[in-house]
């Protein structure tokens, strides 16, 4: 088994991972900015770097989930085309495809969350 158990071949968890990373990223950005501004610190530069680092990490995680979805699940295959019966292969491809779409959506969402901190230089 080359992957952790949760992301085992065929496991449904692959679908959940990109949204969870997005939510964690969103919450962390919010916390970092809120705590920094509430403590009255004037320059926002450390927050910008912290959020940039969190964003790169989140995009890395989502990218990894996308690669897994493509390589191990065959997520690039369109569902419905070859799946006519209830069989593990078709189920896996479907999950991979959903995970891939969610990964692209959440990648964009993570970028949008991080954008304001690049534009604003004050609390």
């Amino acid at each position: 088994m080359t992957y952790p158990r949760l992301i085992d071949d065929g496991s449904v968890w692959i679908v959940v991972i990109p949204p969870v990373i997005w939510a964690a990223h969103f919450l962390t950005c919010y916390w970092v900015a809120a705590v920094w501004c509430a403590s009255g610190a004037a320059p926002l530069t450390p927050v910008v770097w912290a959020i940039a680092a969190i964003t790169v990490a989140a995009l890395g995680g989502i990218g990894w989930a996308a690669v897994v979805a493509v390589r191990r699940y065959g997520g690039l295959r369109r569902p419905g085309r070859h799946v006519s019966r209830d069989e593990p292969e078709g189920r896996k491809a479907f999950l991979g495809h959903v995970a891939l779409l969610l990964a692209s959506l959440n990648g964009v969402a993570v970028l949008f969350t991080a954008l304001p901190v690049l534009v604003f230089r004050q609390c």
Binding site: F112, L115, V119, F120
Partner: peptide
């Protein structure tokens, strides 16, 4: 949507 977000943020920055 990305373009609108950036335009909106730049406007907000000017207002702030």
């Amino acid at each position: 949507v990305a373009a609108l977000l950036v335009i909106g943020l730049v406007t907000l920055r000017a207002l702030a």
